[in-house]
């Protein structure tokens, strides 16, 4: 068995993962993960034994399960095992919607479970026979109308957020498709998924923004700046990403931005990212924001890890971009001596 707090290392193997030091287990179950299921099984056993004598013990089993779930939900929300840190105002809106649905569904859940548990405890009907009731029109009307009203509310309240996420013109969410190319952006890049990495190609800020980003996405220019598995931008930037793949479906997942978009072979999908917060602390250290792949793309699907860096201002970003550019031209010069420049050919497919 693996022990908590020690680093796990299988050296020299493919897919080796090294966790340096003690992983920050927020959930205080590092050891209890092993005995707690057994303890819960024991409680279920006790409930069964008691039920042999007292039938109402079944209510306790249902109640216990309900309490367990409520505790889990509260405990994980409290301990930070919840929605990841939010990186943009849109992500805040998504979280708001999430909590709205959470509140409404919790009420319904507690209501239905409460009634169910009550029916297990209720006294026997008078004379031992239940009334032969086949239904009630008014009740049916009530529990048809109330959920319908709430659900229609949920349906309507989410529309503006969906429109914003997809970069649509506000107010036109039923009519507009993907965000219009005329919508201005501060930074343009393509993200190309392939087995198993993300290739970023940034449009050089020295050049004028292309009129048609779709066309630019299909035709790499010499001035473009390349990076692998690293998405850089600056706080407050409107980033237009052109998402592509050269092999299978990948899904570009940025948990902190509540952003996820499949990359579809044969298609370039435009997406807009608002970066309202930076993950660089005042002292220059970086909080890790990761990129993950959310669509099965083969054996190493789990290894398509990248990182997001939102610099504190445009200058910091430009510094990074220029460093990247310099190392790129160095590599190009040394690669010019070689007969076949491979990476560019791949990008062109």
């Amino acid at each position: 068995m693996i022990t908590e707090g020690t680093s796990t290392k299988v050296s020299g193997l493919p897919g080796t993962v090294e966790i340096a030091g003690a992983p920050p287990y927020l959930f205080e179950w590092s050891e209890s993960a092993h005995w707690l299921p057994l303890a819960i099984t024991g409680l279920a056993l006790i409930a069964w034994i008691v039920s042999l004598r007292f039938k109402r013990a079944w209510a306790a089993l249902f109640g216990f399960t309900l309490a367990l779930m409520a505790l889990w939900t509260l405990q994980s929300a409290r301990s930070g095992l919840w929605l990841p840190e939010s990186a943009s105002l849109i992500a805040d809106e998504v979280d708001g919607l999430f909590h709205l649905v959470m509140a409404l569904t919790s009420i319904f859940y507690l209501l239905t479970q409460g009634v169910l548990i009550w029916t297990l405890l209720q006294p026997a009907p008078p004379g031992g026979r239940a009334a032969r009731v086949h239904g009630n029109h008014l009740l049916e009307l009530v529990w048809f109308t109330v959920p319908t009203g709430l659900l229609v509310y949920i349906a309507l309240v989410q529309l503006p957020t969906w429109a914003k996420m997809k970069g649509q013109v506000p107010g036109a969410y039923l009519a507009a498709g993907y965000q219009p190319a005329s919508d201005p952006a501060d930074l343009l890049l393509t993200v190309t998924g392939r087995q198993w990495e993300w290739r970023m190609r940034y449009h050089s800020p020295d050049q004028p923004m292309p009129v048609n980003p779709l066309f630019w996405a299909a035709t790499p220019a010499a001035e473009d700046i390349h990076a692998v598995n690293e998405l850089h931008a600056w706080q407050g930037a409107k980033v237009r990403m052109m998402l592509r793949t050269t092999d299978v479906i990948h899904s570009f997942f940025l948990p902190q931005f509540r952003f996820k978009q499949d990359m579809l072979p044969g298609k370039t999908i435009p997406a807009l990212l608002h970066t309202d917060r930076s993950n660089i602390e005042a002292d220059g250290t970086e909080r890790v924001w990761e990129i993950a792949c959310a669509e099965l793309c083969g054996g190493n699907h789990y290894r398509m890890r990248g990182k997001v860096v939102i610099h504190r201002d445009k200058k910091e970003f430009m510094d990074w971009l220029n460093r990247q550019k310099a190392s790129q031209s160095e590599r190009k010069e040394s690669a010019a001596a070689l007969p076949t420049p491979k990476p560019e050919a791949r990008e062109n497919q």
Binding site: L81, A294, H301
Partner: peptide, 29 residues
């Protein structure tokens, strides 16, 4: 709860990701 935290499905080794490491004890449970 894992899903709310953004734990992708079909991952062979979630501990590769820093944001998934806190969820590993729940995974064991």
């Amino acid at each position: 709860i894992l899903g709310i935290g953004g734990h992708p499905r079909r991952y062979y080794d979630p501990t590769l990701y820093e944001f998934l490491q806190p969820m590993q004890s729940l995974n064991r449970f």
